[in-house]
């Protein structure tokens, strides 16, 4: 009986799934048709828009060119250097602030003063401060992820229920056990949230920084397409940035799932 029910459920699920995929596909087709139409009938203010086929041709060109893939590489390296540095410094800092009241009292006020400054506002100072442009960009990406991860780790530590710590100490755990086996895994969900949000912000910051100060990278490429008045390539750049950001977020989400097997329910 139960198995039959399960099979039926599966079939139903498949049907729904297929319809939804179809709808998703249709929505993309409709978007492209609408785009074609807008360009074709020359809607005011949108006359400069390229045809979808021009963009597709631009994309094909880009895919065959070495500089385009170089741009990807440069941007990804910048993201990962800045992002990983932010985690390496931010996670221990957040844990320390979450655990020690004294440490938090000394550090949190300054932290809270700097946190509301939008990362992009750091651009001028970063360019002046660091000896190379590359370092300034790493720094800006770092800022984009740093404050978010720290605030999330603090939150994560304070959300761990006191009865878990009590249970651990009643089982004979000493402070080092409580730290590594309770506080660290207990704040992991917040750490992953902080990383996911931070990854989104770093792409914003990176693109702005590259457009203003960068040499190479997806953001710079898009900006150069603008200065060369190559509109199809501007669109190719935009889409590439979107795809890159999406891939990076997916990577973080995947890491989160790997790191927290207990969150998976079935």
């Amino acid at each position: 009986m139960e198995m039959i029910q399960e099979l039926r459920l599966k079939r139903e699920f498949k049907k729904v799934f297929n319809i939804r995929v179809l709808r998703g596909f249709l929505s993309i087709v409709m978007f492209v048709v609408l785009w074609q139409l807008v360009v074709f009938i020359k809607v005011p203010y949108l006359e400069n828009l390229p045809y979808p086929k021009d963009v597709a041709a631009g994309a094909a060109d880009a895919a065959g060119s070495r500089t385009y893939w170089f741009g990807w590489g440069i941007s990804l390296i910048r993201i990962f250097v800045g992002f990983i540095m932010a985690q390496l410094i931010g996670i221990p800092l957040g844990l320390a602030m979450g655990i020690s009241r004294t440490f938090k009292d000394f550090t949190f006020p300054v932290f809270e003063m700097l946190r509301p400054i939008p990362p992009i506002a750091w651009i001028p100072l970063a360019i002046l401060f660091w000896p190379t442009r590359e370092l300034s960009i790493y720094f800006l990406v770092f800022i984009g992820a740093f404050f978010i991860i720290v605030i999330n780790v603090i939150q994560g530590v304070s959300n761990i229920s006191v009865s878990l710590k009590w249970a651990a100490s009643s089982l004979g755990a000493r402070p080092k056990h409580i730290f590594w086996r309770i506080l660290v895994p207990g704040s992991l969900p917040s750490i992953i949230t902080g990383m996911t949000v931070g990854m989104g912000v770093t792409w914003n910051v990176l693109i702005a920084a590259e457009m203003i100060a960068g040499q190479g990278g997806l953001g710079r490429m898009t900006w150069e397409a603008y200065t060369n008045n190559n509109i199809p390539f501007i669109v190719v750049g935009m889409v590439s940035i979107g795809v890159a950001g999406y891939l990076c977020s997916t990577l973080v989400r995947w890491l989160g799932e790997k790191a927290m097997p207990w969150k998976k329910r079935f």
């Binding site: 249970a167 009643s170 004979g172």
Partner: peptide, 19 residues
């Protein structure tokens, strides 16, 4: 606290991240 006394709490206090 000491491991000579073991407490089973009112709310579940199993560590969610451990099997």
């Amino acid at each position: 606290p000491g491991s000579d006394r073991l407490v089973v709490f009112q709310e579940t206090a199993l560590f969610p991240w451990m099997t």
